[in-house]
Design a protein around this nucleic acid. Structure first.
Length: 917
RNA sequence: GCUCGGAUGGUGGAAUGGUAGACACGCAAGACUUAAAAUCUUGUGGCCAUUAAGGCUGUGCGGGUUCAAGUCCCGCUCCGAGUACCA
């Protein structure tokens, strides 16, 4: 029997389905292990060879853990709501549910061919009403919660209402939008509508007037992580700032806990750092300034020590203060400036580094000296960070410096010996001068001293500020979760929980209405039973992916997101594998969502993902042919310099080892039917380049084609063999033969002339050594996600066993079990060929015995002053003295020492002898 | 600008401070074959020597620590990723 991978893989995949091999249930007799992949968005293009990389790694790990006796939860599902399906629907009129369903089917077929050990009975889809019921449920909970800073957790909003009725806002410490103060009497006098409006300031899910990233081409707002450099990540359309009333999640309330949580999880340093930067904690002070018209405003600074160097103030153009503080004489100029900066897109603002600004006409009093400081307006100050206003210290901030130089404002240096004639001195070091009571202190001492004084004089307070903003949660789109919200007298109310899910209605078109309302405005009878209008926005992409890992624990539960039992058993994700692109989006929202559910007692762990591994991107490797200009002639790579040529992308599937299949090329496009070729050595050699894998570059490799040609086991091994998991690397099919050859060699250890030929004789020492070396190496490598080197270890082992002509059952049995996580189909087949009745999944991961790994003799590298010169063999039990004596007596040593006495001889247990001369 | 990675043969990549280049691709030579494919064997960093034995050199660049550095420290160059008027 030959290695017939097609037949084997088909048969075993069917067997696993028939026997529900990978179905898991809670089992208190076994330790749990939860391995999760970031579930895919099922796009129309299907999977390319880069997508399964992380899935293969997590599958290997899951299978390994199962063999070690863990009860492994390894589920898969689909992040099914998304823009591409909706845009396709707009173009074609096809319902996004239909295209999504088709794409999911295609994904599933592709995934099934690779032989993953998913428990498909737990599949979830974010667009399934039974699933998004719980997304809506969580939203309702957030609507009815506020965040208490004192107990550092979310609490029911009713408690806040009770408190307002009894004591107003007195001594309240809760996360809120703007600082509000009122008494119980004032609260009780307010109308229902007014009270509801006020509560928005504290709800965790709230309606807020915020500056949003508006993308006109997509017709919707976007979250910060959906925008990069002023363009939308999906589609690459320009994004502008706009003020709109939108649903928001008070993620900022959890900033400190999100930061602290990073300490206890096993993620890469770079990913943690990215999250820390995104949260952006900075310690400083808020200071009150009083402007000429008796208006007080606040600024935030991290450099309270530089208070005596303030020579002017700056407001953000979008800030409400700008309007209030502009004098009549300056109004025209300020309005013109504000208008101009509003029209700029985010992108233009960033590209334009020139200094602009306008004087507001007002002055603010210096809180210590009373000096009048001119108030300017400039777009280098952002409305969305801090208070939207700053105190400018040109001597010690480069942006303030540039502004001061441009508008000729005074610059007062505050640090001894610093030179501010050419540039500002931004470093936080040196001795303070020109600073009244701070003089003589170091900057380090002066910062807290200044804040203490500010607090003592009552002109401000200590404050920790975060860059992390609340998440904008409304999208003006069709294909997303509807909000479980209706409106009464213009105020939002939640639907009762027993009316969930609120299903997405049908619409005639997937476009905004004529009056500019979101697509749900087209839905008929989009009201409650009582006739109240329902919310027209839908939720963003990250809504459905924020708690899916919890749902997998108990996916068919109709009464809860997850039952207490299931959650108490599975707890959290032990290993999460996915791409870095979610570092500031999904992985922040998901952690926030989990912390909120933790406060509610729904999730029993503070952090959802204990360990996280980022797999690298697989890039495409494009091939080129070189067309002679003005002719239908193509010249081979190394001859192209002799001609005037244009490089043209050629489909990588008709190129093998950079040699073009000329007949396939002629058939590829009618244009090339009559093409002529200038060959070298009778071959046409193509050029190549590493580019993103995409259709337009003709470099997409479909895993189906690889499975067809080499089998799933080869694909799995080869994807791992390509290089370290976390590293980005180009796909290059060229090396795949070696891996395929390895599987055939493995097969040939079991079969002789088509017959199974396994011996029950006792294995020799060398045979045992070869396989125990493998067990040790592979165990270590899997634990460390070093799958590429474990594939090498298999090759070495099989080569050794072939050389030894080993066919001993004990040895082959261990080999098969080790191979099972990597190449499950062939492992199952061989496991049965060895006469086992159960599946290889039921086997135990073998343990290695150091006894077999011991060597009788060791080669010692003999070095002179660190340079290796020759190698000597010593027996394992040779003593230091024996080795030293033998080395020094050796004729080669005499040569290298050249008559000199050795100063010392260093013998390292790692088989190095270094003679210092 | 800041933060974090990375740089090793023709290629992908191995190396708890201890014989650099494992393993694989490719290439070359040979065996089998009428022939090709497949398979197997051998060789393969560079330079010098080759009748040998061997020698020199070598992990982006320049220094340092060490008996010993691809690995640790200091200073550069280049490449990649993330982030950015964050006060």
């Amino acid at each position: 029997m030959n290695y017939n991978f097609k037949e084997i893989e088909k048969r075993w995949q069917q067997y696993w389905v028939d026997h529900q091999t990978y179905k898991v249930t809670e089992d208190s007799t076994k330790p749990k292990y939860y391995v999760l992949d970031m579930f895919p968005y099922p796009s129309g293009a299907g999977l390319h060879v880069g997508h399964p990389l992380g899935y293969i790694a997590s599958d290997i790990y899951s299978r390994y853990k199962r063999l070690q006796g863990f009860n492994v939860l390894h589920p898969m599902g689909y992040d099914a709501y998304g823009l591409p399906a909706e845009q396709y629907a707009i173009q074609t009129g096809q319902h996004p549910a239909i295209t999504t369903e088709e794409n999911i089917k295609r994904y599933r077929e592709q995934l099934d061919k690779i032989g993953f050990s998913y428990d498909w009975s737990r599949e979830v889809r974010t667009c399934d009403p039974e699933y998004y019921k719980w997304t809506q449920w969580a939203f309702i909970k957030m609507f009815h919660s506020y965040y208490c800073n004192q107990s550092r957790k979310a609490k029911p909003i009713n408690k806040l209402v009770d408190r307002f009725a009894k004591q107003g806002t007195e001594r309240l410490d809760a996360a809120c939008g703007e600082i509000m103060e009122f008494t119980a009497a004032e609260w009780n006098r307010k109308s229902e509508k007014e009270q509801q409006e006020i509560l928005m300031n504290w709800r965790i899910a709230y309606l807020g007037d915020t500056l949003v990233n508006w993308c006109a081409e997509l017709g919707t707002v976007l979250a910060n992580d959906e925008v990069s450099e002023g363009f939308s990540i999906r589609g690459g359309y320009p994004v502008v700032q706009k003020k709109m009333r939108q649903w928001c999640l008070r993620v900022s309330a959890y900033a400190e806990r999100l930061l602290e949580g990073l300490e206890e999880i096993d993620w890469s340093d770079s990913l943690k750092e990215t999250q820390r930067n995104w949260i952006g904690r900075s310690e400083g002070a808020v200071m009150h300034f009083t402007a000429s018209a008796n208006i007080t405003f606040d600024i935030f600074t991290t450099r309270a020590d530089t208070i005596f160097g303030v020579t002017f103030m700056v407001l953000a153009p979008e800030s409400e203060l700008t309007d209030q503080l502009t004098t009549d004489e300056q109004r025209a100029a300020v309005e013109e400036y504000v208008d101009k900066s509003k029209k700029k897109t985010e992108r233009e603002r960033m590209a334009d580094k020139s200094v602009t600004g306008v004087f507001s006409g007002s002055y603010a009093a210096h809180p210590f000296t009373g000096e009048a400081l001119p108030i300017w307006v400039s777009d280098y100050v952002l409305a969305g960070y801090g208070t939207g206003a700053i105190m400018a210290v040109p001597a010690h901030d480069s942006r303030d410096y540039a502004f001061a130089k441009h508008f000729n404002l005074p610059i007062v240096p505050l640090i001894e010996g610093c030179d501010v004639s050419e540039e500002s001195f931004d470093a936080k070091e040196g001795i303070m001068i020109n600073s009244d009571f701070l003089n003589g202190m170091t900057v380090e001492e002066a910062i807290p001293a200044a804040i203490d004084e500010v607090e003592k004089r009552g002109v401000g307070y200590r404050k920790v500020n975060y860059r992390l903003r609340d998440a904008i949660f409304s999208r003006q789109r069709y294909w997303g979760e509807p909000f479980p919200i209706y409106y009464k007298e213009g105020m939002p109310y939640t639907l009762p929980e027993n009316e969930l899910p609120l299903e997405l209605p049908e619409v005639d078109k997937y476009l905004p209405t004529e009056t500019g309302e979101p697509p749900l405005g087209r839905a008929k009878n989009w009201t409650t039973k009582e006739g109240y209008p329902l919310e027209l926005n839908t939720m963003p992409g990250f809504a459905g992916s924020s708690a899916y890992y919890l749902r997998y624990m108990d996916p068919r539960n109709e009464n809860a997101l997850v039952s207490e039992n299931a959650n108490a058993y599975w707890r959290d994700v032990d290993l999460y594998i996915g791409g870095t692109e979610h570092a500031t989006g999904h992985l922040v929202y998901s952690r926030f969502w989990n912390k909120f559910l933790y406060d509610l007692g729904v999730s029993c762990e503070k952090e959802p993902f204990k360990k996280l591994v980022n797999q690298g991107m697989i890039q495409g490797r494009s091939n080129f042919v070189y067309r002679v200009k003005g002719a239908n002639t193509f010249v081979s790579l190394n001859l192209k310099d002799q001609y005037d040529v244009t490089p043209i992308h050629v489909d990588v599937n008709i190129v093998h080892h950079d040699v073009l299949d000329i007949e396939a090329f002629r058939a590829w496009s009618p244009e090339y039917k009559e093409a002529e070729f200038i060959l070298e050595d009778g071959k046409y050699i193509c050029g190549w380049a590493i580019e993103k894998m995409s259709k337009s570059m003709y470099n997409v490799v479909n895993p189906d084609d690889i499975v067809e040609k080499y089998g799933a086991d080869t694909l799995r091994l080869y994807e791992m063999f390509l290089g370290p998991l976390e590293q980005s690397k180009p796909w290059d099919t060229n090396g795949i033969d070696g891996v395929h050859r390895f599987l055939r060699k493995t097969w040939n250890l079991f079969y002789m002339n088509g017959e199974i030929a396994v011996s029950d004789e006792e294995a020799s020492k060398e045979e045992l050594k070869a396989v125990h070396k493998l067990i040790k190496k592979v165990s270590y490598d899997i634990e460390h996600f070093s799958f590429n080197t474990s594939v090498s270890a298999f090759m070495i082992c099989v080569n050794e066993l072939s050389t030894l002509k080993c066919n001993k059952r004990a040895v082959l049995s261990d080999l098969v079990v080790c191979l099972a996580p990597f190449a499950p189909h062939v492992a199952e087949e061989l496991w049965h060929a060895l006469g086992n009745e159960d599946t290889v999944c039921d086997a135990d991961w073998p343990e290695w015995d150091e006894e077999y790994l011991k060597e009788d003799t060791f080669p010692y590298a003999i070095s002179f002053n660190g340079k290796s010169r020759f190698v000597l063999e010593f027996s394992a039990d040779a003593t230091r003295e024996e080795i030293e004596k033998a080395v020094l007596a050796h004729e080669n040593s005499q040569r290298w020492m050249d008559g000199k006495e050795p100063k010392k001889v260093i013998i390292v247990p790692k088989k190095i002898v270094n003679v210092v001369i």
